[in-house]
């Protein structure tokens, strides 16, 4: 464990807790894409299949349980909670996210480190995580503005992957044979997807005005 990975995990934890807190406290999920949340639940479900078979550390297992629990809770709130579900903007959140999953699955069947059931699903979860934010970014473009908590959620989510890139660089230079091209490229693509959002987030923060994404 290094400081970059710890910062990344804490930022990731903060992003899901910020979102869960928002939805639980104000009983609203306005501006949040259910499609992105469903994709994240699938990302964690396919990423942590080995939670019962391979034990790394208490920290690792605890964080996996938190990520699984929070992502499925957010989906539950948005789909089934009597008050929250009414605030979900289903006509605007129309991204065909199943069309994202198929290419990720095909790519995982083609490019992976080992051709085993767990490894292919794990690789699928990496590719899916890279694009999972797209429905949320599309929703923001449509609604043309963004409330603070959703903005913080995306900002933290992008920051977590940025910290992970620093972690991969650190591990590459400090651990012999630590080479995971698939993880690195998927993580880089994911972070680049956030880059333009970060740019507009920074502009709105600098000019101290409401974040408006270009049409």
């Amino acid at each position: 464990m290094n400081i970059f990975r710890l910062a990344g995990d804490m930022t990731h934890l903060a992003s899901v807790l910020v979102l869960l807190l928002k939805i639980h406290t104000i009983k609203s999920c306005a501006g949040v894409s259910l499609k992105t949340q469903e994709l994240y639940a699938i990302v964690f479900a396919t990423r942590y299949l080995d939670i019962l078979t391979s034990f790394v550390s208490i920290y690792n297992t605890l964080m996996k349980l938190i990520f699984l629990g929070s992502s499925f809770s957010i989906v539950w709130y948005m789909k089934y909670h009597k008050t929250v579900r009414r605030t979900y903007d289903r006509d605007q959140d129309t991204f065909r996210h199943w069309f994202l999953m198929l290419p990720c699955l095909l790519l995982a069947l083609l490019i992976h480190e080992k051709f085993t059931f767990f490894e292919v699903l794990w690789t699928f979860s990496l590719y899916l995580e890279a694009v999972a934010i797209l429905p949320q970014l599309v929703l923001l473009q449509r609604t043309r503005n963004i409330d603070n908590l959703t903005g913080q959620y995306i900002f933290l989510l992008g920051g977590y992957r940025g910290f992970y890139i620093l972690n991969w660089i650190y591990r590459y230079f400090t651990e012999p044979h630590y080479v995971h091209w698939i993880t690195w490229i998927a993580g880089l693509v994911q972070t680049l997807l956030y880059a333009d959002f970060f740019y507009y987030y920074f502009l709105s923060w600098k000019n101290n005005k409401k974040l408006q994404l270009p049409a």
Partner: peptide, 10 residues
């Protein structure tokens, strides 16, 4: 070895 490619990241 086995642990080198053990998935220790979240």
């Amino acid at each position: 070895g086995a642990d080198s490619n053990k998935k220790d990241e979240l």
